[in-house]
Design a protein around this nucleic acid. Structure first.
Lengths: 183, 183
DNA sequence: CTTGAAAGTCCTCATTT
DNA sequence: AAATGAGGACTTTCAAG
C-alpha cells in the first residue's frame, strides 16, 4: 500500500463523499439505469473509473439500494397521510414498530415536538387508513393520534445528493438597523 | 402499426396493475437491478414476457423512475424534519413551491388538518434548517411554521407494491356485546 | 486514472404453442 | 398472452501505459 488510497484510513468515522462521488450519486439518484460509460461521461470520468468509485460507494453503504419508484395509483394507494402518534411513557415500544409489517406504512420516525412518533402511510382509501389507525389504538401505550391527510402532492423525491452550499447570508446588522428605524 | 401495441387505448382511465404486474413491481421496488431473466423466474414468467410487461408498466406510468437510494449521512444530511406551514388565504402560492429548488426539500404536500402545507426536508444540521425556515417566512402568505425534528428513523422505504388485502374485520357486534357487559 | 480490447451477459427478435 | 431459441448489441472488466 504505497499511497493513501482512500479506504478507511479514517478510523471508522462516517465517510462523507467527495465532490466527484457526489456528482456520481447525483446522476444515479436521477437515473439508476445509466451505464458506467455514460455515467462516467457525464461526470468527466472513464467507465472503469466510474465503476470503481460506485463500487466503493456501495461498499461504504453510501448507496443503500437501487429501487423502482412506482406510481401509487397503479397499485391502488390513492390516500397518503401523515399520522402523529402520542404515546405514554417513552415511545420505544417495539409493539408500535410492528406496524412496519404493513406495506402501507412507509416511514416511522420518532420526533421532537408534541408528537412522539410520526408515520407516513399510504392506503387504498379511508377505510384502510381507519383500519391502520385501529391497529395503532390497539397498541399498548398509544395515547392519541392526529392524522394529516394529503390533498395533493407537489413534490416527492428520494434523498438528493446535492446540497445547498451558500445559504443566503442574513445581514442581521442591516436588519437591526432597519429595526431601529422602525422604532 | 399492425397490432394494438399498447399506448393509451384505454381512454385515459387510471390503469390498475393486475396480480402479475404487482408481483413484478414488488420485485423491482426491492431491487431494480434484477435482470429480466431472474425477474421472470421469480414471478413465474419467461424473460421476454417479463420484459414485455415491464415495458408496458413504464408506458402506462406505473413505473415512474429507477433511482439509487443513498445514505443521507454520506452526503451530509443528518437532520431530517417535517415542517407544517400555515398560510393565509389558500396555500396555492406558487411562491411557496419555489422552495422545491432546494435539494434539501424532498416533499411538498397540501394537507387537510390544521396545517395547510407539509414539507419534508433534510439538511446538514440545524443551521441549514434555520435558513430554510427563513426562506419560508420570507414567502408572502406564510403565517407560521411548526417543525418536527426527527430523532431517529425506524423505517423509511419507497412506495410498496403490496397491499394488505384482508384487514382485520372489526366485529362491532361482539364489541357492542362486550360494551353491554361492561355496563 | 485512461485507453484499449476481450469475455461475458443481457436484451430482443422471430417463431411457435 | 407467453415460451423457446438464436442473433447481436452492450456492458463489464481486465490488462497495460
Amino acid at each position: 500500500m504505497k499511497k493513501t488510497d482512500g479506504i478507511l484510513h479514517h478510523k471508522g468515522e462516517a465517510h462523507t463523499a467527495d465532490p466527484m462521488d457526489r456528482k456520481l450519486l447525483g446522476q444515479l439518484v436521477g437515473d439508476a439505469t445509466l451505464s458506467y460509460a455514460e455515467l462516467g461521461q457525464r461526470v468527466g470520468l472513464s467507465a472503469p473509473a466510474a465503476h470503481e468509485r460506485v463500487k466503493r460507494l456501495r461498499q461504504r453503504g453510501a448507496i443503500k439500494s437501487v429501487s423502482t419508484l412506482i406510481d401509487p395509483a397503479s397499485v391502488e394507494k390513492s390516500l397518503l397521510a401523515f399520522v402523529h402518534v402520542d404515546t405514554t411513557g417513552w415511545g420505544k415500544t417495539p409493539t408500535l414498530l410492528a406496524i412496519s409489517q404493513y406495506p402501507e406504512v412507509e416511514e416511522i420516525h420518532s420526533v421532537a415536538g408534541d408528537a412522539c412518533m410520526l408515520l407516513k402511510v399510504r392506503t387504498n382509501g379511508t377505510q384502510a387508513l381507519e383500519h391502520l389507525l385501529a391497529q395503532l389504538y390497539a397498541t399498548p401505550g398509544v395515547k392519541a393520534t392526529r392524522s394529516y391527510v394529503v390533498l395533493s402532492t407537489y413534490l416527492e423525491r428520494p434523498v438528493q445528493a446535492e446540497t445547498t452550499q451558500e445559504w443566503p447570508v442574513i445581514d442581521f446588522t442591516r436588519q437591526q438597523a432597519d429595526a431601529k428605524n422602525l422604532l
